[in-house]
Simulated assay, not measured.
Amino acid sequence: MSASLTLYHSPTSPYVRKVMVLLHETGQLDAVTLRGVQLSPVHPSTELNEHNPAGKIPALVLPDGSVLHDSRVILDYLDHQHQGTPLIPREGPARWRRLTLASLADAMLDAAVLTRYETFLRPEDKRWDDWVLGQFSKIDRSLEVFEQASGELEKHFDVAAISLACALGYLDFRMPDLNWRRDCPRLAAWYSAVSLRPSLQATTPTP
Rank of each mutant, 00 (worst) to 15 (best):
S2Y: 05
S2G: 07
S2Q: 08
A3H: 04
A3F: 04
A3R: 02
L5N: 08
Y8H: 11
H9Q: 06
P11H: 03
P14A: 04
Y15K: 07
V16D: 00
R17Y: 01
K18R: 09
V19A: 02
M20H: 02
E25V: 08
T26V: 01
R35M: 07
Q38E: 11
Q38R: 10
H43A: 12
T46I: 10
H51Y: 07
N52M: 06
N52W: 09
A54P: 07
G55K: 01
I57F: 04
V61M: 01
S66E: 13
V67Y: 00
L68D: 01
I74K: 11
L75K: 04
L75R: 08
L78D: 10
D79N: 11
D79C: 08
H82A: 10
Q83M: 04
T85C: 03
P89A: 07
E91D: 15
P93G: 09
P93Q: 12
A102R: 03
A105N: 12
A107K: 14
M108V: 14
A112T: 09
A112H: 12
L114K: 15
L114E: 14
R116V: 14
E118L: 15
E118G: 15
R127F: 05
S142I: 03
E144N: 10
E144P: 02
E147L: 01
Q148N: 12
E152R: 08
K155P: 03
D158Q: 08
S163D: 05
Y170C: 11
D172F: 05
D172Y: 09
P176F: 07
D183M: 11
W190V: 05
A193M: 10
R197G: 15
P198T: 13
